[in-house]
Simulated assay, not measured.
Amino acid sequence: MTSGTPPRIFDERRRQARAERSRRLQQRQDAPRWLAEAMAEDALDRIAFMRLTPARALVAGTGADMVAETLAQGGAEVTMVDAAGLDHERPYPFGGFDLIVSLAVLDTVNDLPGALIHQRAALAPGGVLVASMVGAGSLPRLRAALLGADGERPAARLHPAVDAASGAALLQRAGFARQVSDGWTLRLGYRDAATLVADLRAQGLTSVLADAPPPLTRSGWARARAAFLAEGDDAGRVIETIEILTLTGWHDARPD
């Protein structure tokens, strides 16, 4: 490995398999979509607050359909891409967008600074990037339950993630003229870790780590579920949290 090569944290084949499984599960009538709905609503609120009226927009990721529909109703020419089918660590095959909305796309790229550089390059001068991803500190109760279930040799079963403090530096490194990095919390109530894991699987949020850990044994999974439930309130409901990191960056109005 050369000094300029980013570490291989995530596996592309596992990412593709995860995306395909999520597509199948999302076809069910009762499929969970709380991440898509929350991310899309937040992105649209930010776009409205900034009074953006893009002529051309690129939308990718979880909840892209909801964002694309709203932007199109406002008169934008919208390009919606399958996030799993686009290599975000290479230059995009299109550009000149006034707005790029990227939702749960950058969570599992190995070269995050490089991916941000490519997204900036796809913006027209003066264009804006709104990129949300699952951030550091997410799923603390599930994480603790899984670590405890592994005993003396815990395995990494959930992804490492970026925190808000690092977000602005990443945008600056990618060449954005202005940078805003902020986090917000999605709170979820569950009575069983198995239901939470099923919801994560259906929304494409399970692990794609290159170094896949061994599966939990039946007894280990039983310990994890018991530890998770022990965090519940008097009604037996565990409040789990997902921290969402949103990066907003502006392409300098001066052409490169």
Rank of each mutant, 00 (worst) to 15 (best):
G96D: 12
G126K: 13
L146R: 04
A122V: 07
A121C: 03
I117A: 14
V59G: 01
T79E: 09
P113M: 10
R56I: 01
A60I: 03
L146Y: 01
G127S: 10
G114R: 13
V134K: 09
E152V: 11
D163K: 08
S132W: 09
M133N: 09
L147S: 09
A169I: 07
A149R: 00
D65L: 06
D107A: 13
T79R: 12
L71E: 00
G75T: 14
A115E: 03
A68T: 04
V78T: 03
L129S: 05
V101W: 02
L58M: 08
G135H: 08
S102A: 15
D65M: 13
G85C: 03
D82C: 04
R141S: 02
A84G: 12
A55C: 14
D65T: 10
A83N: 00
D98Q: 11
L158Y: 09
L116K: 05
P54G: 06
P125H: 06
V59D: 06
V78L: 03
V105K: 08
Y92W: 06
D107W: 00
T70P: 07
G85Y: 12
A64N: 09
D150G: 10
G148H: 14
N110T: 12
A104T: 15
L99R: 01
A156E: 12
G167N: 10
G74C: 03
L142A: 10
S138R: 01
L106A: 15
A124P: 07
G75K: 09
G148T: 03
M133S: 13
S132H: 05
L112Y: 11
A131R: 06
A122Q: 00
L103A: 08
